[in-house]
Write a protein that binds this DNA or RNA. Structure first.
Lengths: 233, 233
DNA sequence: GCGTTTGTTAATGTATGCATAAATCCAAGA
DNA sequence: TCTTGGATTTATGCATACATTAACAAACGC
């Protein structure tokens, strides 16, 4: 591996990003990685100090995070990382299920190139390999790639952006339950079936398979959170 | 009608809203009402002057509008009201169709109270009355209320918020085509059928009816924009 | 002791200052 | 006329200043 390409698309390190953008990414990372756990609060000044910039760009980042639905800005208490309850996850998964099922249908309808299909198959392969070697984190990463690719192939940028946003809201809960849930055997099977349906241009089947896949995942996640009595995170 | 209650929920005019919030609402109003047409640009300073405040709150408002997908911030040119093409409307309607169909299904599944059902029926009634008296704007307003209420009854706040955002993106195009499209007779019929399906708790029918309703509306809108050669707005 | 009031602190919301660099303009040369 | 180089303007991104007011605490009255 070359020395930290850190890439992002362009090869030349012309990545002049604004402080506001850096703040946005840094704060979001802290939240998604759970370094800033649900419920924690961060004052503008604290964040600014931590990130080595003034309050202004931090403030702008917080505004964006609030619109993303991951934090809440409380007038005198800085931003507060929103706890996500089982009920919240129910909401998120209901919408994700609807949108991703539609995405699967769209992909099957419009068809995919050989490379695109291979991309999906590769992701499924990685999931199977990770699962075979009990690498749950690897499985989760490959699973995420699969869903991401599927939605991208639907070719609807708005759909893609919304799904990304919701996935981020669900991210912490998914990580939390990754080792508490049954092994995702069925999940891999679902994905393989979906790939077949897409290859066969069977919109009907693609929608149904992915709908049920997502619905199952949602039920599992919400059930787990409920049964563990998680009122938050 | 009473003298401009302009309400908003509370009766006492304790509406202390921040300048940033005022800027956000004012700018969004200007855009949705087409006073700032698609493609127009507005510098931070100009907007600040116009709204009687400094650049800071205006800047924050613009950031929110950008995340809403209605403007684009171009580093030296202020914000630019995003033109919406037929392709954009295709995207918006595909997502709306998916989500609203799901909402209809959810509402039918969970059932509604007598008052809630009446609310839907009232909206349908208003649409019919408006149509009978050739009041297209009234019809559009009632139609909007119907869809809004339906989604609200689904009881999923994330779904509701996303649908609202997408509806706003489609708003200008809908207004533009309101008088160019055939009379929305079928639309009223669809809504009446949906209300029946909801009352009968028939999820299946509710989803199908509303799916097709939205799909038809989307096709009509996109087709109209296409045929009129609208590359933007 | 306990509720109330008042004083202090501090976080925010907004305004303003300032360096930077993009955009524009202008002139001169090909 | 078209291009090019550089000067100039100016919108921005960020830092900072400042007034406001909520939050907290301490003092006070009961």
């Amino acid at each position: 591996m070359p020395l930290t390409p850190k890439d992002g698309g362009s090869h030349f390190e012309q990545d002049r990003v604004s402080s506001a953008e850096r703040a946005y990414r840094a704060l979001k990372d802290l939240i998604l990685s759970n370094e800033l756990p649900a419920g924690s609060q961060l004052l503008e000044q604290e964040a600014a100090l931590r990130l080595g910039m003034s309050r202004t760009p931090v403030r702008e980042a917080m505004i964006r995070l609030e619109q993303d639905g991951v934090v809440e800005i409380r007038p005198r208490h800085g931003m507060r990382v929103l706890p996500v309850s089982a009920a919240d996850m129910r909401e998120v998964y209901d919408v994700l299920t609807s949108l991703e099922a539609t995405a699967a249908e769209m992909v099957a309808r419009k068809g995919v190139t050989a490379e695109e299909l291979q991309g999906l198959k590769d992701a499924v392969g990685e999931m199977e390999a990770a699962l075979a070697s009990d690498n749950l984190d690897g499985w989760a990463a490959a699973d995420h790639r699969f869903h991401e690719l599927l939605v991208k192939l639907a070719g609807n940028q708005r759909l893609q952006q919304i799904v990304t946003q919701l996935s981020e809201q669900a991210h912490r809960a998914r990580m939390l339950t990754l080792r508490l849930r049954p092994k995702p055997i069925g999940s891999n099977r679902d994905h393989a079936m979906l790939v077949d349906a897409i290859a066969a241009r069977d919109e009907e089947a693609a929608r149904r398979i992915h709908y049920e896949h997502r619905a199952k995942a949602g039920d599992m996640l919400v059930g787990l959170l409920d049964s563990l009595g998680f009122k938050q995170l």
